[in-house]
Design a protein around this nucleic acid. Structure first.
Lengths: 209, 209
DNA sequence: CTTCCGGCGAGACGCACCGTCTTGTCAGCC
DNA sequence: GGCTGACAAGACGGTGCGTCTCGCCGGAAG
């Protein structure tokens, strides 16, 4: 009994083809954008990438996993291109409302970019029905962004713009979740006005002041 | 050229078998609970319902549509059993915060009932990726419940507990959407404490009063 | 530089499910 | 009581699944 591997005879990463890996990422993302997630198949990805099916099955265990890594790769690439620390930190001008509104406007734009929308919709949908995928989606894609809001709200607390007993992790859901639900479930239109309103409601509540 | 039907020679509803219809509803719901949505197939539903596949294809156009009607039927049935006007109107004791907290606690319980959770997760997931299904899901299942919050917030506005310029349709998202997102996407735990906190934040905001 | 091992592209395989179509039966309006 | 069309059952070709087998070839080790 030699070294016990999680999946018998694990493949040798040293000999892995970088060329194939990237071709698979690109094919997966393109297909999801063009044909939609349900019509995106492993066979289709392999064919478009000019790759044997086994190469996909060797390194990933599901369509969702392929797309997750492909999308993660795309995000990192986009982050590198935009330059470090561009959209990836929430500004702190001292005016919490203005800063949140500014970031949410960028988010609104991003949600309408097909190259971003198609894969993240697909992954979100898969995550709703498959808890494992869902938690991976949250941990790798969502949580890092949410943490930025936590930090910004904490700063606002120290500046006296947010009550100290407020839980930042819950506070951010007052504007993130409504936007997310409208986008994911088509419960309503998404606009700058809308996100601006969310920030106002979140900061001051709906009760008389 | 006789009466032009949307789908050539539409079936005759008068001769439709009620017995088969209900057997299909039950089989679909059971399979989704037991095996999960992806493993629920039309062939599987037909087999378990003791029904020919054609009977399903005759009356529905997709797995999602079958499940949607089945779940709608289940909801109406549950509503009838609970008696008219039980959970289906939001109480108005004059204390908006208390009323919202009470209803949200019931929602939390409902979200954890497997017989309810499995189908609504499945439909929500399908709706994320298929806009047609998504809009139907919202219109038939979500919107009616949300309307109750709109009515309750309007009453609160007339009672002077909510500022008059507040849009009730957006206000309700301050507590509904965060709960929905935590449930759908596994972004955090769901508890009475959590929903109580949401109501407090929504009413009074996070800024110093 | 040579050897060799294992990832590689290609695609055949059996399986499950798709959506359509066929058959004979039987239930419900006329 | 007769006709019509929905019904249960299941055959059918098509497609994607996940596994497998085949040579090929390219990078790590000697």
């Amino acid at each position: 009994m030699a070294t016990q591997n999680p999946k018998q005879t694990a493949p040798d990463t040293a000999r892995r083809s970088e060329r194939s890996r990237r071709a698979i990422y690109e094919a997966a993302l393109d297909l999801v954008v063009e044909a939609g997630y349900p019509k995106t198949t492993i066979e289709g990805i392999a064919a478009r990438a000019g790759v044997g099916k086994q190469t996909i099955y060797r390194w990933w265990s599901s369509k969702a996993e392929v797309l997750m890594e492909a999308f993660l790769d795309l995000s990192e690439q986009a982050a590198r291109e935009a330059g470090p620390e561009k959209v990836y930190v929430i500004p702190d001008t001292g005016d919490l409302a203005a800063d949140l509104k500014a970031v949410l406007r960028l988010t609104v734009d991003q949600l309408k970019d097909p190259r971003f929308e198609a894969p993240s919709r697909a992954l979100a949908a898969e995550g709703v029905v498959d808890e494992k995928v869902g938690r991976a989606f949250v941990a790798k894609l969502l949580e890092p962004s949410l943490q930025l809001y936590v930090d910004r709200v904490r700063a606002a607390q120290e500046a006296g713009q947010v009550r100290p007993e407020i839980d930042p992790r819950i506070a951010l859901e007052l504007w993130v979740s409504p936007l997310a639900q409208r986008w994911l479930q088509y419960t309503g239109p998404i606009s700058y006005d809308y996100t601006d309103t969310l920030v106002d409601y979140a900061l001051h509540g709906i009760a008389p002041r």
